[in-house]
Amino acid sequence: MARITAGIASSHVPLLGVAADTGKDRDAYFDPIFAGYDWTREWIAKPENKPDVVILVYNDHASAFDMKIIPTFAIGCGERYKPADEGWGPRQVPDVEGHPDLAWHIAQSLVLDEFDMTIINEMDVDHGLTVPLTMMYGAPEAWPAKVIPLAVNVVTYPPPSGNRCWALGEAIARAVQSYGEDLKVHVWGTGGMSHQLQGQRAGLINAEWDNMFLDGMVGDTQALRFIPHIEYLRETGSEGIEMVMWLIMRGALGRETKALHRHYHVPCSNTAIGHIVLEPVDGTVPPSPTLEGNNGAAQAAI
């Protein structure tokens, strides 16, 4: 049986990819950022922690999807994905290998569970997906885990609500638990923390709010799932909304979590860097209220 063994959250600032790719990751500016990932790199290299598959929640930044088509939740069921050319040539990092079997299993389970998924079989992946891989794994010949991309719309309003993201995480947990093969699965939530990349208010950082959010990832509280979009916008800048993607990860870890590692640094480019490694203490998620046919009313009607 596949098991969710950990959840990781991380910012995915494109400049971190540039720094790593050009060997600047230990200079005076970047060292305080990358040093906060040393713990994780060591931890994830240990056989008992190494995931077979990462469900990597991220957002596309006008790379794979343009304005012609905007999926709210898109799950990658393909064999592999190439790094996108975001305007300065593609990053020279390995292709991302998918896990079509588990991905399709999850996609099918989520649709039965009444999530209106978009299934993607071919796309390029941008910094939102490749930067977290760099932060966790450095620069290997090939990425050490297979990856299931889960792209969330947080660019065109409205993005999904925090509650919907958390519930999607719970449904992902149910799907993983019903997969037959014995696999260690991570769920990563990426983006954030506070940042605003536009307008006269650009450069906004809210360390207090960010740390409240990091606190809320730990333990058995579900307060974060009810934060409305307007609060992210006011408190954390227009791009802070990316943090709703962390809630998918958190929802997938179940009732209660423990923090293994935590890191916060300001600034990286325009952004507050946040990173946390979580372990489920009690991975219980509520049963599906909606699975096709799996309820009394459905059966009575047949």
Partner: peptide
């Protein structure tokens, strides 16, 4: 690019970010 929207020059903007960013 982002600094051009704030009315600061890029050095002022960078200094603000290094000092913890713009307060909400």
């Amino acid at each position: 690019a982002v600094s051009t929207m704030t009315g600061m020059n890029v050095d002022e903007y960078k200094a603000m970010m290094d000092a913890g960013g713009r307060s909400p």
